[in-house]
Structures are given as C-alpha cells and as structure tokens.
C-alpha cells in the first residue's frame, strides 16, 4: 500500500484587506478556507477551479512560499508549518515548484546554466565542475542539449523555457513537485510535448505531482485523483474517472458541462450558471456555492456542508449527499 507523502489538514490562508488613511485592516480575503487532502507517494493529484478559487495559493502555502494562516501541512510525517526558515530551506530540496509563466519565472539576465545550477549551489554542491555536469545532464533529461546551457532565456521559445523551468525544479532530485499551471501559457502542440515530458519524468524519477490547472481536459489527462475547488474550499475530491463519469457536486457538474469539446457530435446538456463568482472577501454564508447552485435548498444558506466521503474515496462537500 502506498503511503501518504503529503497531508494537508485544515489549511487556511486569509489575506488582509487594508484600507482607510492609516491602513487599518478592514477585512479579509479568504483565499484558502479550510482545505484538507492527502497526496500519496508517486501520485498525481490534480487541483482544478476557476480563477480566484485559491488553487495557486494552496500550492504556494504548502511550500510556505506564502505563510499559511492556519492549518497543518505534513510532508513525510513531518509537520512543516512549525519549521524555522533554515530548516524549511533544507526541506525545499525535496519540494519544488514549476510556475505558469515561463517568461516571467526565469531571470532574463542569467544564463540557463546559472538558472539551473543555483539550486544546486544553494543545496551544497560546491564544485563548479560537478554543477556543470549536472546541468548538462538535466538539460538532456528535459529534452534540451548541454550546449543550451550558455544561452539566455530570451533565446528560447515558450515550450523550451518551460523545459528549463522543469530542469531547475528537478535539479535536486525532489520528491514532490507542485506544478502551478505549467502548460497554460503554451500552444496546443507544445502543451502536449510538455505533458508527455512530465509523465515520463514522473515514471523515471518516481516523482509526486500536485498539478494545478484550470483546463479540465489537461488535468483529466495527467492526474490520478482530482480535487475541485470553489471560492477557497475543496468541494469534491475523488479518482479521475469517478469525477468525470459521476460528478456529485453541482458545481463540478456545471464546470464539466461548460468545457467546450472539439467534437461536433457530442451531446451538449449544458448547465449554464447564472451570474458571476462571488468575491472571496465576502463569501456567501453556508455553502459558498448556494448563490449559483441550481439545486440549492434552505439549509445551504445557513450551514456550511462538511467535506466528507459519500462513497469509497469520493469526498464531497454538499448537503445533497447525507
């Protein structure tokens, strides 16, 4: 049986809203509001949701790139929320992140060699020769060539830059990689190259991914289990096929039906949601989705539904399933 590599329990991240002449706190944005899940070793957990649902904040809070407000994050049975900064830095060797924008996440004034070797240096590889060899090796792993090491990011295309970003993340043989929208900025034909590469690397290096994306078909393709987020909360979490064949939460149902499919013959029974997503600064009471939910009941306005299993391995936060 696999064991969990990461356990997130009751993670919360509130951002203060400052206002007034002296910048007092006037409110909070509940970017992540009580999210719990576990990630098994070697698994790819997808997290989907629309913009502003808190999926990226969740990813960054796990790495403590954003300090979580509350909650526990256990990585390999060690609670990392209480670690000091230097302990955390040592641990980040095992936990890496790939960012969305391959144009913004690489320093334009550094060569690729410097970009990839920096994490090596930080984590104690002091020999320049060794670092150079490792950079060449990593570039080959991600489908580039060692001679690319002397180049600058602007000399690469978007797909190639994302490969550099992946090479940097893999430099220290991490165990867990958080991928924050890694293919969203890429063209379709390049996107599939990167997805294939990521799957190959997972098998080769026995990695665990948390794959954050808004594109449901991409997440479906790569993930083993998928969590759906809405307004800072996890509303449904289950195995990929269960989620797509039998979505339980009304939000998941609407989200899945809204995806345009490149097939003119697919039946379209679309659930079109009315109105906009409410602001996370002022989320609706009870279930956050009740304002847009086609099946809302009275209880939904008052009581926040618990995130609980309704079937084996199928967690849903909805009053319809009790």
């Amino acid at each position: 049986m696999q064991k969990p590599i990461l356990e997130v329990d009751g993670l919360k991240k509130y951002f203060d809203i400052k206002g007034g002449p002296i910048g007092r706190k006037v409110g909070e944005v509940k970017a992540v509001d009580d999210v719990s899940f576990t990630v098994m070793e070697g698994e790819i957990l997808g997290i989907v949701g629309e913009s502003g649902c808190g999926k990226s904040t969740t990813g960054k809070s796990i790495l403590r790139l954003i300090e979580p407000t509350e909650g526990k994050v256990k990585f390999q049975d060690q609670d990392i929320t209480s670690l000091t900064n230097s302990e955390m830095r040592r641990l980040r060797k095992d936990m890496q992140i790939i960012f969305q924008d391959p144009y913004a996440s690489l320093n334009p004034r550094h060569t690729v060699e410097k970009i990839i070797s920096e994490p090596l240096l930080v984590h104690g590889m002091t020999s320049a020769k060794q670092r150079l060899d490792r950079v060449g090796e990593l570039l080959e792993v991600v489908g580039l060539s060692p001679y690319h090491a002397k180049r600058y990011p602007h000399q690469f295309s978007g797909g190639q830059r994302q490969r550099v970003g992946i090479a940097r993340a893999l430099a220290n043989n991490p165990k867990l990689v958080i991928c924050d929208e890694p293919v969203s900025a890429l063209d379709v034909s390049i996107q599939s190259q990167i997805l294939n590469l990521m799957e190959k690397l997972r098998d080769e290096f026995n990695l665990t991914y948390i794959f954050i994306a808004h594109d449901l078909s991409v997440v479906k393709h790569i993930s083993d289990r998928i969590g759906v987020m809405y307004l800072g909360r996890m509303v449904e979490l289950t195995e990929k096929n269960k989620l797509y064949d039998n979505p339980k939460h009304p939000y998941t149902q609407a989200l899945l039906s809204a995806v345009p499919l490149p097939d003119p013959d697919m039946p379209r029974n679309r659930v079109i949601l009315k109105g906009d997503v409410p602001s996370p600064a002022n989320p609706p009471s009870g279930c956050a989705f009740h304002t847009k939910c086609p099946q809302a009941m009275d209880i939904c306005k008052e009581v926040r539904p618990a995130f609980q299993p309704v079937e084996d391995n199928h967690f849903v936060a909805c009053h319809l399933y009790k």
Binding site: V188, S189, S192, Q193, L195, K220
Partner: peptide, 23 residues
Amino acid sequence: GLIKSLPNMHEREQQLYSIPGVV
C-alpha cells in the same frame, strides 16, 4: 496533429500525440 495532441476528456491514452518541433 493538432487535433490528436489535445487531451481527451473521455478517454485515456497513455501518451499524447505531439507534433515535434516548434511553430
């Protein structure tokens, strides 16, 4: 190639088709 390289919501293929090279 473009159509084949799209991840499909309704089937799982082990590997996505991808067009080599760049635009």
